[in-house]
């Protein structure tokens, strides 16, 4: 059964077309990554799915029930948040959750304690929310979503603001929930963060779906990975790269070489360097295949699909630390 089926969603804001006939379908139990750069329309799509924004066209079904705007019963069993979760700052985290549980008609102290514990806020639940850090609010947002015992979880940039441990816990939680059959749609512009959690991806760019499919399909279609390599003789390595099929190399701005190469080809290239007497001192992954694909599909330059992003661009991103 489809947990979510959206078709032909269009949403315009005065001058911008935030969503341009977007189709999206999620089977029950899927974990879907909704990917796209800033302004791609991820948040707007989630707002439409939550009934917060009425689309100009298109329709949505949640668990085979049509979603209506501005109010709909179809949203039962659906939880999550859009943008950074916000709460009543003058109330404690626990009272905030109690209010939400009241609205849900599912009051129960035990549940609230459990939800707080799950997100690691057990000790801070009685503090006022205006004293919470960004990451703590994010955790409280997740707790608020869990209180609804959702069958479909819509999370907008769930790991934004979380510390590394928080990101890891978030991943575990998503996998655990998925293991219990909860369908999850999570948006992000940081593909590395969600790559390991998702079994399928939808990529948005300027309000349009530019790619949609499973993780395997993505890996199969993904272009070469990008690496940064330091070796004993850059000139010789560059020459050898020219002789080897499937290896593209350019001198990097920060010294060494930038490479675009598939994993199998990389092995034989490194062996070839060795036999030619060139020592490989360091080899680091700049972008995974999925990342390369993401950059390729969603970057604003009009490059044909599946073409690897310019190595120089990846190199620049690596320098910028993104």
């Amino acid at each position: 059964m489809a947990a979510l089926r959206a078709s032909g969603i269009v949403k315009r804001f005065e001058t911008v077309c935030a969503l341009d006939s977007v189709d999206l379908a999620l089977e029950t139990g899927q974990v879907r990554g909704l990917l796209g750069p800033n302004g791609a329309g991820k948040t707007t799509l989630l707002r439409v799915l939550f009934g917060l924004v009425a689309p100009d066209a298109g329709k949505v079904e949640l668990f085979d029930r049509p979603l209506e705007w501005p109010e709909s019963d179809a949203l039962e069993g659906v939880a999550g948040f859009v943008e950074d979760p916000s709460f009543y700052p003058y109330l404690s985290g626990r009272v905030n959750l109690e209010l939400l549980a009241e609205l849900d008609g599912r009051a129960g102290t035990a549940k609230i304690d459990d939800a707080l514990a799950r997100v690691g806020l057990a000790g801070r639940g009685d503090d006022r929310v205006n004293g919470y850090s960004t990451g703590m609010k994010q955790r409280l947002g997740i707790a608020a979503a869990l209180l609804r015992e959702p069958r479909l979880l819509l999370l907008d940039e769930p790991s934004a603001g979380l510390d590394p441990a928080g990101v890891r816990d978030m991943g575990e939680l998503v996998r655990e929930l998925a293991g219990h059959g909860v369908t999850i749609l999570l948006s992000s512009h940081q593909i590395v963060e969600v790559e390991g959690m998702c079994d399928s991806f939808t990529m948005l760019r300027r309000g349009r779906v530019v790619w949609d499919g499973t993780a395997e399909q993505l890996r199969a279609q993904a272009p070469a990975s990008a690496y940064h390599m330091h070796c004993s003789d850059d000139a010789r390595a560059l020459e050898l790269a020219g002789q080897q099929r499937g290896v593209r190399a350019t001198p990097s701005q920060r010294g060494g070489l930038a490479l675009a190469v598939d994993l199998g080809v990389l092995d034989s290239y490194v062996l070839a360097l060795g036999s030619a007497g060139v020592a490989v001192r360091r080899l680091e992954l700049l972008a995974s295949p999925v990342e390369s694909m993401f950059f390729a599909l969603t970057s604003d330059s009009e490059r044909p699909r599946n073409e690897p992003p310019e190595l120089a661009e990846l190199d620049r991103r690596a320098l910028a630390g993104t």
Partner: peptide
């Protein structure tokens, strides 16, 4: 407080 989205995504229309 930016809490409309919080209130309106619960079980109250």
């Amino acid at each position: 407080y930016g809490t409309w989205k919080l209130v309106l995504t619960r079980s109250c229309t």
